[in-house]
Design a protein around this nucleic acid. Structure first.
Length: 288
DNA sequence: TAACGTAGGATCGGGAGCTA
DNA sequence: TAGCTCCCGATCCTACGTTA
């Protein structure tokens, strides 16, 4: 039983006005390409699923050996390239001060994450997880989305994800690099960047998408990302692909689980992605 | 051979969020 | 609050394949 993707689509379904200054023209959007809210919610959901399981990750949290960090900068030592990772599980450092997010649970309000009653109950049962500075990263998660303009998004998606695992392992060779690609299967998309006016005042500019071809080609592209089987290898330790249907026009966002999405048993399936992370963690960090 | 369509790479730039 | 970084869609350009 996993919750991450359901939490994501539920949270994104409610139009949001942005965490700070509000989006342009006073519009509210389900998905805004210039926001990192979707990445943060997705990574939070992945971490939530990992913590709900009876595994070493949970025991290390309970024993106050580890904590988490967000937007953690990792530096590829070999070429000095810097990269901010969405969410990092790390050896417990000094708690951050003066930040709105002081704990893992605080992210729910900070990023307007919508939980069901069951998920809220499960969150309350978790030990307190402080937001701290990162002493030594054990697991780094990076999520990226492609919602429209797939032809241009594909090379960008590949390059940015490829640079993520290089930065993670260039910084900390033993750290688990987890990557996740979120791909839209909707046949149209209302782009916040193409509608430069208050929605309703003028005709909405709707981008037509050639589906399922565009989504499938994007899946094939990210499946080409290198993956590694052991320390010393090159690539992601675990990589997942999630398919959603997001028209971005107010209709609820739907999790796609038909032939377009990775089947059960595929290494890219969400459950396999989670299981691989906890398996690697158990073998790699048992001595902490 | 010219015209057209498509794919992919390079670059740009608007908006959000973070930090000093 | 200014300046910066990050995210990722928009735009432009080139290469290549297809068709008349």
């Amino acid at each position: 039983m996993s919750f991450g993707l359901q939490i994501l689509v539920r949270s994104l379904s409610t139009p949001n006005s942005g965490a700070g200054k509000g989006y342009a023209y006073g519009n509210k959007w389900q998905y805004h390409p210039r926001s990192d809210r979707h990445s943060k919610i997705l990574c939070w959901g992945i971490a939530f699923d990992l913590l709900l399981r009876d595994n070493l990750i949970r025991r290390h949290i309970r024993d106050e050996k580890t904590s988490f960090g967000i937007n953690h900068t990792m530096v590829d030592f070999t070429n000095k390239r810097r990269k901010d990772l969405d969410l990092v599980i790390c050896q417990r450092g000094t708690p951050v001060s003066g930040k709105a997010v002081a704990s893992f649970a605080d992210m729910v309000d900070a990023y307007e994450i919508e939980l069901s009653q069951e998920e809220e109950k499960l969150l309350r049962q978790l030990p307190a997880i402080p937001h701290t500075g990162v002493r030594s990263a054990l697991l780094a998660l990076e999520a990226k989305a492609a919602m429209t303009e797939f032809g241009k998004a594909r090379p960008r998606l590949y390059d940015e994800l490829n640079s993520s695992h290089q930065a993670i392992h260039g910084d900390t060779e033993a750290a688990i690099a987890g990557g996740f690609a979120l791909i839209n299967t909707a046949s149209s998309f209302v782009s916040p960047l193409r509608n430069h006016w208050k929605i309703g005042e003028r005709k909405t500019d709707v981008t037509k998408l050639k589906q399922p071809d565009e989504a499938l080609k994007t899946v094939q592209k990210v499946e080409q990302l290198p993956r590694r089987a052991s320390i010393g290898g090159h690539g992601f330790d675990s990589f997942g692909i999630g398919m959603i249907e997001c028209f971005n026009d107010g209709r609820p966002i739907r999790l796609v689980s038909d032939a377009l999405s990775p089947p059960a048993g595929s290494p890219f399936h969400y459950d396999a992605f989670i299981e691989r992370i906890e398996t690697i963690y158990a073998t790699r960090f048992a001595g902490i």
